[in-house]
Design a protein around this nucleic acid. Structure first.
Length: 492
RNA sequence: GUCCCCAUCGUCUAGAGGCCUAGGACAUUACCCUUUCACGGUAAAUACCGGGGUUCGAAUCCCCGUGGGGACGCCA
């Protein structure tokens, strides 16, 4: 086993990656890369009712989109194992768990339990009524192993339970994020290691895998904090040295509840569809519980890796603020070189663009269009919306109604239309040509100020507010401008 | 119910006993830039959950409350 840092992200594949899970994955990734260690993806699919290959593919898709590539785990395409500690899917490691369970049974630290669900429920209710903790007290705890084996040979189903009754002490460990945490051993009852169908249970396979896969540090969500006691007991039973643990706080919604699917977007997939950049999502999620030593907020992955430390991870729960995420996205969007921004934006633009518009070149159409429109959108979806002005039919906004009422508007619209109809223009109007027309309308119609500018804008984009016209107009095809001007004339 | 974790502006946070008259960011408001909007700039407003200790001195350490969260599964 190596001294190098080895950490893992161990999701159970039940659908797209949730932002809470994404943060756990990200912190593990940052931690691994910070120390030059390995980031491993392990698939916890022992709950066969919920785990499907379809879900696994969705999960992998999100992880890759985020750019959190793992060094060991499954191949994204074939789902075959990559790395020397495999298999990495728990459903393929059943024999390993069985061997370890047998060892614990042989040592007398676990036993076969034949209790039925009904018996368990009855006992729990009884204990609860007596104000006792609802811990199972199995009558089979004292059954000799040979006897239990005979029952099993006879076809009876049994779970394997870990024996906690003989352990009477506190379990203490130093959490990387929370400091010393102490659990009394009677906090838990005899818990299940192996289900009656032979499938291992989370707390058991987690320990076996973390140990066998050589994990040095476990960074996981707080909901697992109390599970650590059971896991520590298993490490002790096997005389294995436990890794170091760090428990991350939960990501909460606006009501300070654990983030759930019911309220807004919670999966990375949704943010991808809404036009968020993975770099922005990662940056934002990283800040949900971690901070840069100098308080820097907008960061690249390199900066996060360089500065990541569990000592700067906050133990308190963090509310997911989608407004700030949007701001963060805008920051990353605007910092992107136009060529890259254009490549990101293009798949979101559904309206037709001509060939000269689509192809990016320095100082070309797309470059200029981004300069003009970039400050007005914060997501790629909003960006695509902004680009509709170049190809989609114009709709007049409600705010335009007031402009239509001005007595001067009709003459502005007509002057604009007439100017555009002159035969001397090319496919596009140049900025100087537009300014010239504007000037001409002003002097000839004697309209100025907002009566002129807002009316012109309504004739161009259907709204009195928006991008500076001298930037926008030269990007619009003359025929489009003419068409729109005509529509405007028809309205008054 | 039992055990565990957590607690600084509305939100994310800085803060390791004196640098705190509590700093930054998002959001909010005002102003500036701009014949519009957005971007950008400047400024304002807003927080140490409560009570006890310890100390010359507490946001920071300890205790007790309170509040929030988590766990108590043949889920993970």
């Amino acid at each position: 086993m190596t001294d190098k840092v080895r950490v893992r992200f161990a999701p159970s594949p039940t659908g797209y990656l949730h932002v809470g899970g994404a943060r756990t994955a990200l912190y593990n990734y940052l931690f691994a890369k910070h120390f030059g260690g390995k980031f491993i993806l392990r698939i916890e699919d022992t709950d066969q009712a919920r785990s499907t290959e379809e879900s696994l593919k969705m999960l992998i898709e999100d992880l890759l989109w985020l750019g959190l590539k793992w060094d060991e785990g499954v191949d994204p395409k074939t789902l075959k194992d990559v790395g020397e500690f495999g298999p990495y899917k728990q459903s393929e490691r059943l024999a390993i768990y069985k061997t370890v369970a047998d060892e614990i049974i042989k040592a007398g630290l676990a036993y076969y339990c034949f209790m039925t669900d009904a018996e368990i429920d009855k006992q729990k209710e009884l204990f609860k009524a007596q104000g006792k903790p609802p811990h199972i007290q199995s009558p089979y705890a004292s059954m000799p192993l040979a006897e239990a084996l005979i029952k099993i040979k006879g076809g009876e189903k049994a779970v394997v339970r870990f024996r906690t009754s003989s352990l009477k002490k506190d379990y203490v460990f130093k959490d990387l994020i929370r400091g010393e945490v102490k659990f009394p051993s009677d906090m838990v009852g005899d818990f299940v290691l192996l289900r009656s169908d032979g499938m291992p249970v989370y707390n058991f396979c987690c320990v076996v895998d973390d140990y066998k896969m050589g994990m040095t540090h476990i960074l996981r969500a707080e909901e697992h904090l109390s599970n650590t006691l059971r896991q520590l007991m298993i490490y002790e039973a096997m005389k294995w040295k436990p890794p170091e643990f760090g428990h991350l706080s939960l990501v909460l919604d606006e009501d300070r509840q654990k983030l759930s699917k019911r309220k807004g977007a919670t999966s990375c997939h949704e943010f991808k569809l809404e036009g968020y950049l993975p770099e922005a999502l990662k940056n934002f999620i990283a800040l949900l519980g971690w901070s840069h030593p100098e308080g820097k907020e907008v960061m690249s992955m390199e900066e996060m890796i360089k500065n990541f430390s569990t000592s700067r991870v906050n133990p308190a729960g963090a509310v997911f603020d989608s407004v700030k995420l949007k701001w963060m996205n805008a920051q990353h969007l605007r910092a992107l070189p136009h060529k890259d921004l254009w490549n990101e934006l293009l798949p979101f633009i559904k309206t037709p663009l001509s060939g000269d518009q689509k192809t990016f070149s320095e100082g070309g159409w797309a470059d200029k269009a981004l300069t003009a429109l970039k400050p007005s959108f914060e997501t790629l979806v909003e960006g695509a919306e902004a680009f509709k002005v170049f190809s989609e039919e114009m709709k007049f906004a409600d705010e335009a109604e007031e402009v239509f009422k001005w007595p001067t508007t009709k003459s502005v619209f007509e002057a604009w239309y007439n100017a555009l109809s002159l035969p001397k223009w090319g496919t596009y109007l140049l900025e100087e040509e537009f300014l010239e027309i504007q000037k001409k309308i002003q002097t000839e119609s004697k309209v100025k100020g907002k009566e002129l500018f807002q009316a012109l804008r309504v004739a161009v984009i259907g709204k009195p507010h928006g991008t500076e016209l001298k930037l926008l107009v030269p990007l619009m095809k003359l025929e489009n401008l003419k068409h729109r001007a005509k529509l405007a004339c028809e309205r008054v």
